[in-house]
Design a protein around this nucleic acid. Structure first.
Lengths: 341, 341
DNA sequence: GTGAAAGCGCTAACAT
DNA sequence: ATGTTAGCGCTTTCAC
């Protein structure tokens, strides 16, 4: 592949000049610039991004890394779209790494990304003590966290008020006269799982319903664990009359189990899922869900990272976005008050 | 960040030696190797992947690029998982680029990826005349195509027998006594769209049903076009009694429109979608669909790319996988013969 | 078994 | 306005 040198030869100038027209530096003779551009076109020249990155330490790589916990979760797909749109608009390339809820894989990927000299990282840390992510701060690598924060580390963060979202969902269930509401949690090490549980507990308290251990099940945030835990729940002698599911995938799993048990929604059992999905209204029945503005989360995170790359010392910011309860048909409909779609 | 030089100093050896132990070259004194390893550990050394890539032309980068048309399509998510699993197992990193069915974005990403000196590419070309992808061959960059081939270019390719999959779906519909079957196509420039249409036509022919222009609609492979085109179809005076939808997203859109029209599936209208989804059986009603082995497609493609990187001159291979009709409840059930889930 | 030194394709002083 | 040159962090001859 043609390099700077080849172009320089062809255009009869030095490589420095070629470099200058590429980065459109000032002080270049129009005629020279033209000749160089001709040469570049003629030789189909493409600058080497790695050589550039290797040379200029000053974050000119236009490359960021994104580390997500589970690409099969539609939530992250939307987040990625948001990041992608912003970054594409700013001429950045992104490397997406999916660590499949596997901390070791996460560590490995973060190392690799750093070795690639990315200009910055967007990460959803495995948990709040995530040492690998914390280390980024010491190494002075720009990064922003999404969905989950880090303990004792200041970093840009964009997420949703998980407790409130859960609280609203469970309150809604309670208002619809559901009496025995179970919660299927994702990985307990993930802060969001606990915050959602807190919201669940707070709603219960407020309605003077005692918390019961056997009604909350902890899984690994996957569809399979949604299936399995819902089975445990629905097999109980006096089974719950409503489910609050901790994420997208768990919801899908629980739905499958409910069908397997031949239960009618919302008569036999109500369900509200955390995370909305494009096809939620097409589910059977249309699913009531706590919507996170996933695309927006991604976009904001991208924006924050971009800013930090440009201005590494600006103060940290934490963006907390609102959830929205999308009321559809998977719960009883008396008393419905909130927005519908 | 610590570099080769720092480690060399600390261990009291030359950088060449350090490089040797990293790449565990032969002929190294055990004692030396040990000292170097200690030093690396102590300094928390991480090799620079870009320096390595820049230096060694011989594809040591352990980095590949993947270019997909639409990351919001669950099919590609599964493909990506397959690629990811294989590549992770072989210590490769991958850069995923989503061109959102936008050819210009595709070109831009391919250029960027090449500039990153990736060892190879997995691409679903925008169409079979895709010049940017074709150019990869001339530049001698290892690549494999998925889902769509290239005209007049020999390249590794893994896909599914789209025509046959479509034929089976439409035949099934016909066998279930549906009389007026419409096809909602994705982007016409994509070969799969046309192959699926061919299957649709062939089934019709075989049942002696005349092909009718007004029953096939062409869109852009998105959920929105699924919604819109289904509306057009269902608004016809004498509307179709079955829909064959050209991909995942179109299916979801069509389903939404069907609900909007208050039509009952499968009584008022039957539907079979191309592409199965994890939650297909949770849809309303459970969706009959043509399943592509998406994960497997990704895995095989990754494997082929890996092989080609190692052995650039091995002959090209084309892998055609089988689809499977997943019969569920979105079509009438008389005569059902094929597998169920 | 180990070291010295030349580059990979660029950018950024420093010259002119 | 343009050229010269010293690296960025590695791998890889070629010596010893």
């Amino acid at each position: 592949m043609a390099g700077l040198k080849d172009v320089a030869n062809k255009a009869g100038v030095s490589i420095a000049t070629v470099s200058r027209v590429i980065n459109n530096a000032p002080n270049i003779n129009d005629e020279t610039r033209f000749r160089v551009q001709q040469a570049m076109k003629a030789m189909d020249y493409r600058p080497s991004r790695i050589a550039k990155r290797l040379r200029s330490k000053s974050s000119q790589g236009n490359l960021i890394g994104v580390v997500v916990p589970d690409i099969s979760n539609p939530f992250y797909i939307d987040v990625l779209s948001g990041i992608d749109d912003f970054m594409h608009g700013h001429d950045f390339l992104m490397i997406t790494c999916n660590f499949s809820q596997n901390e070791e894989k996460e560590r490995l990927y973060i190392d690799a990304l750093v070795s690639e000299s990315v200009d910055g990282l967007i990460v959803a840390p495995a948990h709040e003590e995530d040492e690998k992510v914390k280390a980024l701060e010491k190494e002075n690598i720009p990064f922003v966290c999404i969905d989950r924060g880090l303990k004792n580390v200041n970093a840009d963060l964009v997420l949703v008020d998980n407790e409130k979202g859960a609280y609203e969902a469970v309150s809604f269930l309670l208002n619809q006269e559901y009496k025995k509401i179970a919660y299927i949690s994702g990985l307990i090490r993930i802060p969001t799982s606990r915050h959602r549980e807190n919201g669940y507990r707070r709603a219960l308290e407020e309605f003077n319903i005692p918390f019961r251990d056997e009604l909350v099940k902890y899984g690994d945030s996957s569809m399979k664990s949604g299936i399995d835990l819902a089975r445990e729940l629905l097999s109980q002698e006096n089974r719950p009359d409503a489910l609050f599911t901790g994420n997208n995938l768990i919801t899908l799993g629980a739905l499958q189990t409910i069908a397997e048990f031949g239960l009618k929604i919302p008569e036999d059992i109500g369900i509200i899922g955390f995370d909305d999905m494009v096809f939620s209204s097409t589910l059977n029945p249309p699913l009531t869900a706590v919507r996170q503005p996933a695309y927006e989360i991604g976009r904001r995170a991208a924006e924050l990272l971009y800013q930090r790359i440009k201005e590494p010392n600006r103060p940290n910011v934490k963006i907390v976005m609102e959830t929205e309860l999308m009321i559809r048909k998977s719960t009883r409909l008396e008393n419905a008050t909130t927005k519908t779609t």
